[in-house]
Design a protein around this nucleic acid. Structure first.
Lengths: 131, 131
DNA sequence: CGTGCACCTTCCCACAGTGGGAAGGTCAAG
DNA sequence: CTTGACCTTCCCACTGTGGGAAGGTGCACG
């Protein structure tokens, strides 16, 4: 099947499929006589794996590692679990930061009139040397 | 004061100060006879404002808007509050997504033995056509 | 005085991912 | 046989940030 069909079935854009190939995340696709890339169901499955892994927020480097493990029959699940848990910790750290930011912003916005007046505690705080 | 001192006092790297100037987030700095950029306390205050606003996760475009409002005596606090609240909504949306991802990953990791065996529900799920 | 070191200047390159689009080849249907 | 939907490669954009080269400056110390 052509790259467009593979893109549609996998949910990965043609741009991204070519990009993934260019950075060696994917093996070079088979080519047909006319130079067109040719994909089979197994390739689509790999693309879907990548998309789902990306959806879970793994970096392309991590996707590459997970993909290798997925395709390795002699893998140990320890490594997979370690990757997942490291990622969980990272996400939790980022969530914690973002929640703190939201708390700060909500507090500031609460005290801001939000009307025609120029007085604004949000800007005061951003401009103060205290924060 | 030289750019290095301004960087140290503001917490914005020299690289970033020059970059902010190049994208017109900052007015071109005054120059001394030798071509060196020259900063005063007011400039450092602006840099600190930018750093704090960045720390709250605003994009440089939003920083630019907030900076303009900060320096505009005839601003209305409505606009500031609107920017802050839009940003809060955006952060909350992203937090929600990330929490869902963490939930999924925790569930998957829980069922993964994490030992020498290759069997691994995490990879099974990433590879399944169901998800 | 000269020498070295720390600073400054501009300029280009890299990264992660993704999208846009140009210039050209191909294929199928009308 | 033309038209339109594909495909190819290539370069450029974005968001922010850092690294480093090549060259000029300023100051302190011997």
């Amino acid at each position: 099947m052509n790259i467009g069909a593979a893109a549609e079935r996998s949910g990965v854009s043609t741009k991204m499929i070519r990009y993934y190939e260019s950075i060696d995340l994917l093996k070079p696709a088979a080519r047909r006589g006319n130079g067109y890339r040719d994909y089979g169901d197994a390739d689509v499955a790999i693309l879907q794996f990548i998309r789902r892994t990306r959806d879970l927020g793994f970096s392309l480097e991590e996707v590459s590692a997970l993909l290798a493990l997925w395709q390795n029959r002699r893998r140990s699940s320890r490594e997979v679990k370690r990757l997942a848990e490291t990622h969980i910790v990272d996400l939790e750290r980022r969530i914690k930061n973002m929640r703190a930011v939201v708390r700060t912003l909500r507090e500031l916005a609460q005290h801001c009139h939000g009307d025609e007046r120029s007085e604004c505690p949000i800007l005061d705080d951003l401009g103060s040397k205290l924060s």
